[in-house]
């Protein structure tokens, strides 16, 4: 499995709640961690964008973020990333931030999961 498809698999595991029990313990543990990141990330987006929890809970991997949500200018993106650092206990380097990561909810979630797993 390539790194990219592994991340996609984690995202799917996080997004499709209820598809548990693959039998692979390591994969199960990763999926558990990934699953914990999804609601935290949605809560952060909720808080930063001032959206209702119901609206954000409907976000899926393809939901557009930067460039689609007018509130997300550079100051707001900075606030979002700094809040992710605080709540997910990760450090986001300058070079981590690119258009792809901010393009969709799935991209941001993949990134957050990868950072959390890096420890």
């Amino acid at each position: 499995m390539t790194e990219e498809s592994a991340k996609t698999a984690l995202t799917n595991a996080a997004l499709e709640i209820g598809q548990q029990g693959s039998g692979d313990a390591a994969k199960g543990a990763s999926a558990e961690r990934a699953k914990a990141v999804d609601p935290q990330l949605k809560q952060i987006l909720c808080d930063v964008l001032g959206l209702d929890a119901d609206d954000v809970s409907a976000f899926d991997a393809d939901t557009g973020l930067f460039g689609h949500v007018p509130e997300l200018d550079s100051m707001a993106v900075a606030g979002l990333l700094t809040e992710m650092e605080d709540r997910l206990d990760i450090i986001i380097e300058d070079e981590d931030v690119d258009g792809e990561m901010l393009e969709t909810y799935g991209g941001l979630l993949d990134f957050a999961i990868a950072k959390v797993e890096e420890g």
Partner: peptide, 24 residues
Amino acid sequence: PRILRNMLRAQVLALRETGQQLSI
């Protein structure tokens, strides 16, 4: 430090949109 990190990051992102690559 957190106030500055947030504002520096916003500046890094804004500069990047104008083609300038500078770090926090």
